Simulated assay, not measured.
Amino acid sequence: MKDWDSLVAFALTLPDTIAATYYGGPAVSVASNGRAFVSTGREAGSFVLSIDTDTKALLLETDPATFWQTPHYEGWPALLVRYDNEDPTRVAEMVARARDQAAARKPNKPRKKA
């Protein structure tokens, strides 16, 4: 996954996924519940992976060259992933894990209009 387009192409091969938006930017979500698991970030050369905090901590500790965060992501179940990395197989596995975690969650509740 060398860029956003190749990441999306891979993510859309996973079961029950659709191209979507998340906080106004491009994302890939689980179709049945609307939960995004990858999205674009503000940081060049990286994407956002939504994943549980235990896995996040492990990834940050074991491969900080690929998996990293800015203060914006501290305390949240998401981290940044560099497109240019030495282990694309591990990244693909983490994207699939994030999809599985998102699929297991309840659907998003509709927001109340003001």
Score class of each variant (00 low, 15 high):
M1T: 10
K2M: 04
D3F: 01
D3N: 15
W4E: 03
S6H: 09
S6A: 13
L7M: 01
V8H: 05
V8N: 03
V8D: 00
A9C: 01
F10N: 00
A11V: 02
T13P: 00
T13R: 13
L14R: 02
L14P: 05
L14I: 00
L14D: 02
L14M: 01
P15W: 08
D16P: 06
A19N: 07
A19S: 12
A20V: 01
T21Q: 11
Y23Q: 13
G24H: 03
G25Y: 00
G25H: 12
P26K: 13
P26S: 11
P26R: 15
V28G: 08
V28E: 08
V30A: 00
V30P: 07
A31Y: 05
S32T: 15
N33D: 12
G34E: 06
G34Y: 10
R35W: 11
A36Y: 07
A36F: 09
V38W: 07
V38L: 12
V38P: 05
V38N: 08
S39Y: 00
G41A: 14
R42G: 13
E43L: 08
A44N: 08
G45C: 11
F47H: 08
F47P: 08
L49R: 04
L49D: 00
S50E: 03
T53L: 12
K56C: 03
K56L: 10
A57W: 00
L60I: 11
L60R: 14
T62H: 10
T62L: 09
D63L: 03
D63A: 15
A65L: 13
A65R: 14
A65G: 09
A65K: 15
F67H: 09
T70E: 01
T70S: 13
P71K: 14
H72P: 05
H72R: 10
H72N: 09
H72I: 03
E74N: 06
E74S: 11
W76E: 01
L79V: 04
L80A: 05
L80D: 02
L80R: 11
V81A: 06
V81P: 10
R82M: 09
R82G: 01
R82H: 14
R82S: 12
R82L: 07
R82N: 12
N85Y: 09
E86H: 14
P88H: 07
T89V: 15
R90P: 00
A92I: 06
E93T: 09
M94P: 07
R97G: 02
R97D: 03
A98V: 11
A98T: 10
R99Y: 00
D100H: 09
Q101Y: 09
Q101A: 05
A103W: 01
A103M: 05
A104R: 10
R105D: 06
R105F: 00
P107I: 08
N108R: 15
K109S: 14
P110N: 09
P110G: 08
K112D: 06
K112R: 11
K113V: 10
A114S: 15
A114K: 14
